[in-house]
Simulated assay, not measured.
Amino acid sequence: MTVTAAAAVAGLALPASSPALGASPQAATGAAAVQEHLQELQKIAEANGGHRASGSPGYQASIDYVKAKLDAAGFATTLQEFDSMGGKTYNLLAETPGGDANNVVMVGAHLDSVSEGPGINDNGTGSAAILQAALDFAGSGAQPKNKLRFAFWGAEEEGLVGSSHYVRTLPEQDRGKIAMYLNFDMVGSPNAGYFTYDGDDSDNEGAGPGPEGSAQIEKALNDSFGGAGVATEGTDFDGRSDYGPFIEVGIPAGGTFTGAEGTKTQEQADKWGGQAGQAYDPCYHSSCDTVDNVNQEALDRNLQVISAAVKTFAEQTPTR
């Protein structure tokens, strides 16, 4: 997650002979697979100067890893090149062969880390979770009514550069085909909170609601957590992650978040466990953001909610 607020393809054309979605029967699924992805991202960082910052060899290796997984499962993948910090880097987009191309559900997470560390919670967790949600959906054999497009953003940590480039350069007619955007940035914070983006502005903190339809997304995510016995709190659309460029152009958005450098209150500790008076992620933007900096329970709960959202919104989209 970036500290500052700062998007590609004119349409992701599918090859004429796109393979059907599927997954290897030997592949791990669910939470176990997410752990494998995080371990791989850690190894990539360790082999490339300790980080996966956009434009670096570690980021390129992260892109290669994720793309290979999605290609093997039958997604149509596209690399979108753009400039950041004086160099070339990429967004990775992957979409289902089937589904209504005039009604696209986007699910995104930034894949880059800061240069200070490997970025496993920020944002290996979000990237690994949406990757596995995509692979599990493919492995289920389900055929989506709506087209699903998964986005792995570059240069988020430099000010939402990748997602901003995508939205800015997308032709207006294709922008209008995006029914909604779901964002997952930091979903395994060690002193976790359970936040959903406040689509209806019910927390009354002044940031305002998301575009029309965002409240329905928030309700669906809250209901999913609630079904698992987890209470949630709203968090503002404050422009700190990749939903920002989408809500600026009126696209409904939502997502989940387990907290960054903010401090957990006593009331939150009573509700969720963890340590009051401590940061949700004490290793935020630092070298200790490794695989040991992940709350497994929070990550597993978020994966279940993300997977449920993918299945739900593959079939229906919010009213606008």
Rank of each mutant, 00 (worst) to 15 (best):
T235C: 11
A179M: 08
G176V: 10
N146L: 02
V105P: 04
D238W: 08
A133P: 00
H285M: 12
S18H: 06
T256P: 10
S127W: 02
N302I: 05
D112R: 04
G199F: 04
L93V: 10
A6W: 03
A94D: 06
Q268C: 03
N295E: 09
K67N: 07
A28C: 02
E116D: 12
E36V: 15
M106A: 13
H110T: 01
L170N: 07
G262R: 11
N103V: 10
T263Q: 11
E157C: 04
A220M: 10
A47I: 01
D236F: 02
H165Y: 15
G117W: 11
T169F: 08
S307C: 02
N204P: 00
Y166T: 13
F225Y: 15
A53L: 02
G208F: 06
S56Y: 03
T265N: 10
K219V: 12
C288P: 04
R301M: 10
T77N: 14
E95V: 12
Y166S: 12
D185Q: 09
A5F: 08
S164M: 06
S163F: 06
A133K: 01
Q35K: 12
Q304Y: 04
N48F: 03
A45S: 04
D112S: 06
R301T: 15
Q278G: 08
D64P: 00
E267P: 00
E156D: 13
S224C: 10
A53S: 08
W272N: 08
W272Q: 09
G262P: 07
Q216W: 03
G141C: 10
G86E: 03
F75R: 03
A27C: 07
Q132H: 12
E267K: 10
A314H: 02
K264V: 14
P245V: 07
D289P: 10
T125P: 11
E248T: 07
G98I: 00
T232L: 05
P25M: 06
P318G: 08
V187T: 05
T258F: 10
N146D: 04
A28F: 05
D100P: 02
G30A: 13
S287Q: 14
L70G: 01
G49Q: 09
M1Q: 11
K147E: 07
